[in-house]
C-alpha cells in the first residue's frame, strides 16, 4: 500500500510538533506519547491521502488536538458532577486578582532559562487553565471556540486563561508582584 520507509521519515519530521501539542494539552509525558502514537497510527490509515500532501501538518495537529481533548473529556466527565458548582463559583473572580503594571512586563526576548522555566510551568498549571491557555496561544483558537470545544462558559474560559497567564507571569517575574512596582 505505501512505503514504510517514507512513512518513518514522515513520523520523524512531524513527531516533535505532534508531541508538543499533546504534552502541552495533557501535561503528562506518558499520556502525550500514547496520544502521539495514536495520531501516527491514524495517519498511516490515511496515508494514501496524506503522503506528499501540503496539509499533512495541519491534519496531524488537528487530530492530535482532538485526541487530547477526547482523552481529557473522558476523565472530566467523571468529576464534572461534583465540580460544576465549584467552577461556577469561580467565574467572575478574575478582576479581583492583582495585575502586574503594564510597564513591569518585559517584552524582550526570553532567555533560555526563562523558556525552560515557562515550559516546566505549563504542565503544572491546573488542567482547566492549561488547556484553555494552550488552545488560545498555541492552537490559535478564540475564546468562543474554546468555550464551545470544552463545553464551558465564555466567562470561565476568559478567567482560566487570565489566571494561567498570571501564573506564568508570576513564575517568570516573581519580584514584580503588584501594580506600579
Amino acid at each position: 500500500m505505501s512505503d514504510p520507509a517514507q512513512f518513518e521519515s514522515f513520523v520523524l519530521a512531524y513527531q516533535d510538533m505532534v508531541f508538543s501539542t499533546a504534552i502541552r494539552l495533557l501535561g503528562n509525558d506518558t499520556e502525550a506519547e500514547d496520544v502521539a502514537q495514536e495520531v501516527f497510527v491514524r495517519a498511516w490509515n490515511h496515508w494514501d491521502s496524506l503522503a506528499g500532501s501540503n496539509t499533512a501538518g495541519g491534519w496531524l495537529k488537528t487530530v492530535a488536538r482532538n485526541l487530547c481533548l477526547n482523552h481529557l473529556q473522558r476523565y472530566r466527565a467523571r468529576w464534572k458532577m461534583f465540580s460544576d458548582l465549584a467552577r461556577e463559583d469561580d467565574e467572575g473572580e478574575a478582576r479581583e486578582l492583582d495585575f502586574a503594571a503594564p510597564e513591569t512586563l518585559d517584552q524582550t526576548l526570553l532567555t533560555a532559562d526563562q523558556r525552560e522555566l515557562l515550559e516546566e510551568t505549563i504542565p503544572k498549571l491546573p488542567k482547566d487553565q492549561r488547556v484553555a491557555l494552550v488552545l488560545y496561544h498555541f492552537e490559535d483558537m478564540d475564546y468562543a471556540d474554546i468555550a464551545k470545544q470544552l463545553g464551558v462558559s465564555l466567562g470561565k474560559v476568559k478567567t482560566d486563561i487570565f489566571r494561567a497567564r498570571e501564573a506564568l507571569r508570576k513564575k517568570l517575574q516573581p519580584d514584580r508582584d503588584s501594580v506600579g512596582v
Partner: peptide, 19 residues
Amino acid sequence: KLAAWAGQALKQLPARRAP
C-alpha cells in the same frame, strides 16, 4: 498587556522534543 506579554513569551517556546 498581560495577554500580549503571554502571547509573545509563549510564541518563543520551541517545539518539545519527542521521546
